[in-house]
Amino acid sequence: MRHVRLTFCLPVLIGLTPGLCAQPAGFGVPLVGFVLDPRSHSIRPVQGLPGAALVGKALDLPLPFAKARFGLRDDFALAVEASDAGRVFVLHGLRTGTPSATILDGSVTGVQLIALNDEQSAAALYSPTSSQLQFVTGLPGHPAVTPSVSLSGLPGEVLAIVLNTGGTSALVCMSDGATGQIYAASGETGGVEPVAQAFSPIGALFYNQGRDAVFADAVSDELVLIRDIHGARERSTLAAQGSFHGAVAIARGKDQHVLVAGAGSMNVVDFDLQQGIVVSTTDLPVTPTRFDALFDPNVFVINPAGSGPLYLWNSVSTPAVSFVPFN
């Protein structure tokens, strides 16, 4: 049998070995996450709890940034410089208010899409100018790029990229607006293979340890499940059709839920993959253009910073939308 005695610091010692203590290590302002402000090319914290939050002052950064993807758990970010060079940097210590910026050597330039895996240990960078998909490993402390995978010759433009848990392969959603395709790209082999046809797949998720995938189609308004993406690729449309329109983003909810943000329907649909039903629909006060998780995986930002308040959708308890004014 395992035994443990627990203590914590003065002034309370409860049944403890004398000399050991636990101490409140400190206090801080609750932080929902970070957002990139495209107006000033700065990174700004979202401070406070949803419902009582503010977008705080910009972090003291040495450079302006045009794109950023935040590794929320480990307080880092991958960011693309706002310049013609478009260099990629790894930012550390965001919570300190004055983070450091380290260039990611060997990265492709002109990056427009950045994806992080669930572990936030790997990333994928996509540059439409060179049609190159590049994997990054060793995040956040020892980032290293891998040889890029060429997507040139594939029809359409890349709408979204999602990494598997290990960060070794990615689902690439491409479309010309009328027809599209989801591809599986391997960072290890460099290979690209088609997974599923679609009209306009705006995002995808790996499920079942990477064996399956779910994507949302902005044209057909479908939520599609592909089983065995590397094999049989069995396709089925999930019973979410009609619950959203003009999807712009898809995200993983808690407990095998899929969240879809619909711009045309101005809502967020919570679909239970296991039950195969829509469990909730939340109407939005603004048109969603994104659906990015913040520190709390149940809190998502749904609109870009700069035009009015920021809006958050959260399902901490019941799904709700709250605004965050800019300070």
């Binding site: 443990v4 409140p24 302002v29 009582a52």
Partner: peptide, 20 residues
């Protein structure tokens, strides 16, 4: 800056098997 909100960090020291 945020009213009465807080994130407090409490460190607990264990003697024994923490996995218990």
């Amino acid at each position: 800056t945020v009213g009465s909100q807080f994130t407090a960090s409490v460190t607990v020291t264990a003697s024994g098997d923490l996995s218990a």
